[in-house]
Design a protein around this nucleic acid. Structure first.
Lengths: 342, 342
DNA sequence: ATTATTGATGTAATCGATTACATACCTTTT
DNA sequence: AAAAGGTATGTAATCGATTACATCAATAAT
């Protein structure tokens, strides 16, 4: 039962030319109702499926997009992928994935992923690309077929879809403020990361706006990881002037933080309140359930997909001046934040 | 800077025929050292990249595989994907993804995913396919290009890679037994699932072997979800003859369970011990850190990829009699299990 | 010296779908 | 009735790489 049905076979079965079969699939309105039906029943009868390699060769398109993920093993990306995949499934594109992390050593440039995959466009979830990487995109004429999602490259004007991180950080701080907290600390993400920068900025802005006390050692460097949350907790435990609340740049940081704080005898939220950022699956079920800023990851993915498709169909230069799409975030209040002990 | 370099252009630049250029890339040993060098420098100079559509058309291959995921949004699959992706990146295949969940309604059959994607092979992470689905694979001659990973279809002899679930369940029960527990409950996965079946079986076997007390209501139906863990907790809280330990079919179930047990005033592990299955990222940092059975998800993915590649390169019929590949699991003891209160 | 053998490279058919252009037929217009 | 226009369909060139087969040169065998 091998699959060797070619368009020619369908044409023969339907008693028409290959052109007619092709049109039946791509421009059915060009055909008479009766031929169209004949052709479709022949297609059905033969079990014909267009050979994409042939079509792609002829049309010089790929009907596929690539999602470049900095670390596929990170479960954070799964919902974004789901959003991307859903959109493109519905719109007839195939979705390829590639993990940049693994090949960091192999000297494969981001642009190589794009060119090697031979896709029409790319969604990049990695905001750590260098200016040089972007130059390469330009140089190879693919810059117009790239959309950043979730992260983005500082100072680049490539189109991107992102959460409203600034607003998220503000919401977190304001929430803690409204609970009565004044001494608020922040565990940041990794140094070179745009998200780190914006969330920290939002946090600092809101802290200033609310006229809260400032201490340099309340801004603790982390890297989004559980481990860095643990490290931050160790620091906090030993502070003589301890904050009463901590806003973490990610939920994972918050988990590490809470875990270690608890192990060190500080209770959350009784002794110290914690707010995260992301709202990953388990945040709701953590003990204590985590108060956090929800990112609509599925929405980020779907929006990025839709934006990329727009760019692709609009042709070159389309994405050039597109403003970043901001996706709303939402404060989700749970058990890890409460009024401070007095 | 458009990319329009064809093999002909390279040939011209190198002063050879297209055949020679093609050979330089696919069978370099056929060429003289000097021509090979000339060709490669021409390739480099022109920035040539083979057009995969053309190659695929000619060779009737795709150089790509599809990973069929039952629910891409489920972070559990991310590490498996990472393993698959890493392997295929290293071996020159592209990796496509598709989410069956979303299209359950659209009447798209599993075999359609395969055929529409026009790939060389497929890794299926969904064990809930019907006998009819498998028939379709056979009928379309693609059964030999499919490998199941993690889950598999009961009674099918398609090649698969899976964790040693039976052993995992035994380890979990034995661990609890050795801590002193006798009254051990189990929250299962969803009814129709092969993993549910095997893990339950392993649990029951070990319970019988150790001659532990049996109560029907200690086997609680769940579905791998956090929510079902919560529901199970409610049931357990209200039992008059309460188990002192619970083995959960997934970590998520364990989280839901612990979360609700705690909310209902039962402490883990002081009042009740809990063991999970999977060892997802957060298990280590949950409060209390979760004792669980670790699945090597990255390894599952990589093994599945490698097995699929074997099948593809060995040609038709290769996977036919391959025994399931069992990947070792490991008991990871953390804070959620302890000796029972006396 | 002639033939056989091996090795390196070139020639050209081929994979299957798309689509510009050509053709044939049918209306409508004058 | 002839011309013009429109509509439906067919013909065949084309996309770019691979590879069977042909060719040619160089070496080995007789």
């Amino acid at each position: 039962m091998a699959k060797n049905v070619r368009i020619r076979d369908v044409a023969k079965a339907a008693g028409v030319s290959t052109a007619t079969v092709s049109r039946a699939l791509s421009n059915p309105e060009l055909l008479t109702e009766s031929t169209r039906e004949t052709v479709f029943s022949a297609i059905h009868a033969t079990g014909y499926r267009v050979n994409k390699a042939a079509r792609n060769l002829r049309t010089r398109q790929a009907g596929a997009v690539l999602v470049l993920v900095p670390n596929l093993g990170n479960p954070f990306f799964s919902k974004i992928l789901a959003g991307v995949s859903e959109w493109f499934d519905d719109h007839g594109y195939s979705v390829l994935i590639a993990d940049t992390k693994h090949h960091a050593t192999a000297g494969k440039l981001p642009v190589d992923y794009f060119l090697d995959a031979q896709v029409d466009g790319m969604i990049c979830l990695d905001g750590t690309l260098s200016a040089e990487d972007l130059k390469q995109f330009e140089a190879n004429g693919v810059a117009d077929q790239i959309v950043f999602a979730c992260e983005w490259v500082h100072d680049s004007n490539l189109p991107s879809v992102r959460s409203d991180n600034l607003q998220g950080a503000r919401l977190a701080v304001r929430h803690l403020y409204e609970l009565g907290h004044r001494k608020i600390a922040h565990v940041t993400g990794p140094q070179d990361n745009v998200l780190t920068h914006v969330r920290r900025q939002g946090m600092l802005e809101e802290r200033a706006r609310l006229d809260l006390p400032v201490r340099d050692d309340w801004i603790i460097r982390g890297d989004f990881s559980l481990e860095s949350g643990r490290a931050a907790a160790e620091r906090i435990v030993e502070m003589e002037d301890r904050p009463s609340a901590v806003f973490c740049a990610s939920d994972q940081v918050a988990f590490g933080l809470i875990s270690t704080l608890t192990a060190r005898g500080l209770r959350v939220p009784e002794d110290i309140s914690v707010v995260g950022f992301d709202d990953i699956e388990l945040s709701e079920f953590y003990v204590p359930a985590l108060t956090t800023i929800r990112q609509d990851r599925h929405g980020l993915g779907a929006n990025a997909a839709s934006l990329l498709m727009e760019c692709l169909e609009a042709g070159p230069g389309a994405g050039n001046e597109k403003a970043p799409v901001l996706v709303d975030v939402e404060l989700v209040v749970r058990q890890s934040s409460a009024a401070p002990r007095r």
